[in-house]
Amino acid sequence: MNRLTLKDQLQKYRTPYEEEAAFIEGFIGLTDDPLAYSRERLAGHFTASAWIVNPQRTHTLLTLHRKLGRWLQLGGHADGNENLLEVAMNEAEEESGLKNLRLVETSIFDLDKHIIPERPHVPEHFHYDVRFLIEADIQEKLVISTESVSLAWFTFDSVVDMIGYNPSILRMLEKTSKSEILL
């Protein structure tokens, strides 16, 4: 997936979720800016995430993010890589230690634009997060990266209790539960 493929997928992307639909035009506009794939674009930049589920669609893998102190899907900065699918897969492997990840489909699974709080030497900014659906074996050994405090599989039923109210995670959970991809 390159910049043109991303733009094409975004132009074709449809969602019944109003909050997600409101992001699409902003994502499309960002694709032509080479700095959008780099942290140097301080107003906001692309990130890519992996919504990792087991093949039976009963569990999702979440990380307790070290800097943000919240349970989130795995993912990270593009750091100049315009292939956001590749970024998501690399981040998923790096942050989980999982070697047998399987991309469910190459199309975008979810979009989210969210604010990242100011930290020393980093102003408050937006992440334009492009997410992909990935499967993994729940029995495979997990390895916690330096970016995480913890890493765990959660049943779909327990996600809300563990994370509290996070509309984007709840949306991905709902999409997975309603997905035509269900076994």
Results as ranks from 00 to 15, higher is better:
5 T>G: 14
133 L>V: 07
31 T>Y: 04
85 L>P: 04
119 R>G: 14
17 Y>G: 08
23 F>T: 08
47 T>N: 07
78 A>I: 07
135 E>N: 04
27 F>M: 11
135 E>R: 10
182 L>T: 04
78 A>K: 06
113 K>P: 10
45 H>I: 01
51 W>K: 07
98 L>C: 03
60 T>K: 07
153 W>R: 01
33 D>N: 06
166 N>Q: 13
114 H>K: 11
32 D>W: 10
91 E>G: 01
116 I>K: 14
142 L>V: 03
169 I>H: 05
57 R>K: 02
181 I>P: 09
141 K>T: 15
9 Q>E: 14
22 A>D: 14
171 R>A: 11
54 N>V: 05
59 H>N: 12
33 D>Q: 02
59 H>G: 02
108 I>C: 09
50 A>I: 01
36 A>F: 04
162 M>L: 13
117 P>Q: 12
49 S>P: 05
177 S>E: 08
85 L>Y: 05
109 F>Y: 15
135 E>M: 10
28 I>F: 07
32 D>K: 02
166 N>C: 09
59 H>D: 11
79 D>N: 14
17 Y>R: 03
9 Q>R: 11
20 E>A: 00
130 V>F: 00
89 M>I: 13
95 E>S: 09
51 W>I: 03
161 D>T: 15
104 V>F: 04
105 E>D: 14
76 G>R: 02
110 D>S: 15
30 L>Q: 11
172 M>N: 02
103 L>K: 02
133 L>N: 02
66 R>D: 07
50 A>F: 08
125 H>A: 10
95 E>K: 05
180 E>M: 13
86 E>R: 08
179 S>E: 06
43 A>F: 03
26 G>K: 10
80 G>E: 00
91 E>S: 04
155 T>C: 08
83 N>D: 15
18 E>G: 11
161 D>V: 13
118 E>S: 09
